[in-house]
């Protein structure tokens, strides 16, 4: 299975354009790239959320491929119906793709996602993770990390933002024995492109969890979206990995982590963290990496 599309050869034509996403939006970049890789024969399902809010306002519709908004909880279930319906009416060579945020995937949509993976429906589900409910104005989701300030996890003298660690959705999905799952980041587009293309060629349910920072929600300048996504990987709070044939594989195995403190304190949402809070995050990171190094296939150094 050789992939064809690289950052250099990716098409110039756009499928998702003319939308009203904020400057520096990571989610819209993830959706744009995903559809460029999948092409015009992708049929996309997006739940109520940022991308449908910015790209789906009659008569101003911003997808040149077939696209439909689902209910917030119903990305995966509608995707199942679209895939089955397309086959039933005789459509061939298409890809049904879900493009949902972290709240729509890890919280309200997790039941439908679990059902679709259980059925092994022939769909690709891409979760663009900006670590909070951004469309409604930055509220905590199940993928909001420890310590992050959101409008529902404010930081003050008593509580320093979100008290719970980020839910590990990649491994929750993998635990279904899914055909293919991967993590990605818009901080590493070649890797993301590679994984979309790979997933699109696999029959059965595939899942890509792509971190896509939101400048407004994260409290960063709009021209630093990519940079902060890279820093997140470099400091070890995110990792690029795949799950296939019952095996986890780490795609990038850094020798040293960059400063976690620098990553955190360059964002408004973490500005309030004290050294003790940062120690907790560093300890969580180190425990996770110890488990990764012990249990996952880490010999690959592709990137």
């Amino acid at each position: 299975m050789t992939n064809q599309i690289t950052a250099k050869t990716i098409t110039d034509s756009e499928i998702f354009y003319g939308h009203k996403a904020c400057a520096g939006c990571g989610g819209s970049l993830a959706v744009r790239i995903a559809l460029k890789v999948l092409g015009e024969r992708a049929i996309s399902v997006l739940p109520a959320g940022c991308m449908s809010a910015v790209g789906f306002n009659y008569p101003h519709l911003c997808f040149s491929n077939n696209s439909i908004i689902s209910t917030f909880a119903g990305t995966a279930s509608m995707l199942t119906g679209v895939e089955a319906g397309a086959r039933a009416v005789g459509i061939k060579n298409f890809k049904a793709v879900g493009l949902a945020g972290d709240g729509g995937t890890a919280d309200i949509g997790i039941q439908a996602l679990s059902g679709a993976i259980d059925r092994n429906d022939d769909i690709l589900y891409i979760c663009y993770d900006n670590e909070a409910y951004m469309n409604t104005g930055i509220q905590k989701s199940g993928l909001t990390p420890f310590g992050a300030k959101t409008t529902t996890t404010p930081s003050g003298e008593n509580i320093h933002g979100n008290l719970r660690p980020k839910k590990n959705l990649f491994e929750i999905v993998a635990a279904h024995n899914i055909s293919y799952a991967a993590t990605a980041s818009i901080g590493n587009l070649p890797d993301f492109i590679n994984k979309i293309e790979k997933a699109s060629k696999i029959k059965g349910t595939t899942y890509i969890h792509v971190v896509a920072p939101c400048p407004i929600g994260w409290g960063i300048p709009v021209n630093e979206t990519i940079e902060i996504a890279r820093k997140m990987i470099d400091c070890g709070l995110w990792y690029l990995a795949e799950y296939e044939n019952g095996q986890f594989t780490l795609n990038k195995n850094p020798r040293d982590f960059s400063s976690i403190k620098d990553y955190l304190l360059s964002q408004g949402r973490f500005k309030h963290l004290d050294d003790a809070d940062i120690e907790i995050l560093a300890a969580q990171r180190d425990a996770k990496w110890a488990a990764i190094q012990k249990n996952w296939n880490t010999t690959k150094e592709e990137l």
Binding site: S70, G74, G81
Partner: peptide, 16 residues
């Protein structure tokens, strides 16, 4: 896996 998904799925198929 639920009635919500039953109708959501039917909507997706009908949309095709």
């Amino acid at each position: 896996e639920s009635e919500h998904s039953a109708l959501s799925c039917a909507i997706g198929a009908s949309a095709m």
